[in-house]
Amino acid sequence: MQAIIELAGLKVRFGKQEILKDLTIGLSGRTIGLLGPNGAGKSTLIQTLLGFCPVAAGTATVLGYDIRRQTREVRALVGYMPENDSFIANMSAVSFIRMMGELSGLPADAALERAHEVLFYVGLGEARYRTLGTYSLGMKQMAKLAQALIHGPRLLILDEPTNGLDPSARRRMLRLIRDIRDAGQIHILLCSHLLRDVEETCEEVLILKEGQIVYYSDLVQEHKNNQRFVEIETSGPDRGLAEALVDLGCTCTAQGAGRLKMVVPDHFELRDIFRVAADLDLPLRRLNYRRDTLEDIFLKAMEA
């Protein structure tokens, strides 16, 4: 499968500070989640892909086009929804979206038709003649999504699309993202702090930390092969419980203060944990059986 985004030794510097450090990866999922703490370089990566930031070294391609030499082609195929407020306050939504469509190369009449369509699609049909300055935060987010969709892009870059939304607006936004994904015509790069949003919508996840890739995961595959976990908490120190479980073929990590996290191998009986604890005369305070979530993956990546 052709990579949607391909990075090869990509470095970006602002002055002397290196923001993106030697990123190399190929992303080909329909929806790609971009995660990382503040200052990890997520927004810089997006801006670099759009050709806003100069590349210090390495190369990057988006949909097969080089971001340095073919910036115009890249931008023609990308729809970008920025994180911050970006609109013209005294314009009506429909004329603003139409103007954005025309700037992307749509003829005026087609842009007007598409502007009405996308505004209905994102749920702003009834409010499309209102000026953007009078919109609520949720409506502004939807208008930003509409302007990113007007020209029918092949890659939609969403930077924190659910920022500041109330629960119902957030649900509506995520439903739209899933709907766009399921339509099968657009790839989505979703940058968010909210792991739940990424987990609900993305197939691949890329975690950045201090400008470096610390984790990449195919979430679909991960869910298929998801290992089962057991979190154990003992009363007092674990007194060799971890070692005994490792002897039984489990992978165990001590998390301190009598807390253990173990990966349960196939055909392992959970009652063996109780048996081992009984042999060690070790009271168990808590035993929590669950699968790995994106939050676990994220926290693990951050600790690495």
Partner: peptide, 10 residues
């Protein structure tokens, strides 16, 4: 902040 919207287009 509309500049990023203009310039993210061709």
């Amino acid at each position: 902040g509309a500049m990023s919207l203009y310039l993210s287009r061709p």
